[in-house]
Design a protein around this nucleic acid. Sequence first.
DNA 1: AGTAGTTTATAACCTGGTACTAAGACTTGG
DNA 2: CCAAGTCTTAGTACCAGGTTATAAACTACT
Lengths: 193, 193
Amino acid sequence: MKPKQSRPERRRELQDLLRTDPFLTDWQLADELGVSVATIRLDRMALDIPELRERARTIAASTYGQVRALHGEEVIGELIELNLGQNGTSVLMVTDQMVFARNQIMRGHFLFAQGNSLAVALVDSEIVLTKSADVRFYQPVHLGERVVAKAGITSSQGRRYYVRVSSYVHDEIVFRGDFVVVDVAGKGGGDRD
Amino acid sequence: MKPKQSRPERRRELQDLLRTDPFLTDWQLADELGVSVATIRLDRMALDIPELRERARTIAASTYGQVRALHGEEVIGELIELNLGQNGTSVLMVTDQMVFARNQIMRGHFLFAQGNSLAVALVDSEIVLTKSADVRFYQPVHLGERVVAKAGITSSQGRRYYVRVSSYVHDEIVFRGDFVVVDVAGKGGGDRD
DNA sequence: AGTAGTTTATAACCTGGTACTAAGACTTGG
DNA sequence: CCAAGTCTTAGTACCAGGTTATAAACTACT
């Protein structure tokens, strides 16, 4: 399929091929590069590239982790205290799925998620949606740390509840958010406003 | 490992197990449920659940877009366009993990996550953190819908960037967020303010 | 006890590999 | 030109995690 290439050339191309499509089997690669499967295997060994299944598995696991971690159950973090309609506390351990690989700093939306789901959990109703939020990140949170979020309903107007969430690591504030959540139970849930 | 269960019970549990960890082999499942591997296979057949490798492959393929953007892996949603320092677009399909089980409405923090990670991706730097955000949810988003987030840097002051993200479903706005992100490359990353 | 539904066991086969050996093909030095 | 060394290929044995098909064993019920 390909003209003659030097070994380094071929290996570079092999890496290229896998970068654009990591789901190629050895024989597909062999065919593409015009060499035997055996050669491909040797090249993979030399370049320390794992087999197809391993590649798929790691890609799957990494991306699956992101979504799952964010999915959680109903509340992101563990609910350790909850007084419906008043206040509550949740705790979230920072796992490696929640941080930037580069610097191990927690990604903002996980702090938001913890706060948001706690705010929603506070309201004693079937269907509660977030209408708006104003949030601020004070300090970076790192891998392995334990984030404690405390939330309280500060006021309410009809079906609207104003919830303040403050999150701490070692008693130092790292996040604060003011959430406005709406109880839409009974209504069709057609709109948030 | 488990007490006796009726077949429907077992099958429900099987689905549960795989929902929380899709990387279980048949014999791990068999062991967990206290039945033979053969039974697990029959159950998988009946429930139309593919084998481990197939599961891994599809999970991997689904989240592995052809996006070749540098920060691609770190973004919630699929980056479909990115002009560093200027603007970008990402698309996120709403899966059942992102919605409230009760009403199939997307949980707010996923919209936030999409917006936040897009905002961060826009800035051309090694380390970028979110400092604050002001967000508003206009309309509920439902299971199966496709959220298109468009972001642009509206202004910047030194290392601070103001990014506006607007998300749409069928050309109707569902979310808007104003993010302030800070480029902390070079600094120790010790603080966000 | 008879019989249907359910579960288990058994064997043959498949993919995409690993690990290893042996031999063939291509360069390169002298 | 030929031998030595390097690349490449071929071939075998083995593995995980299955599929497919068939037969045997275990309930449960009447």
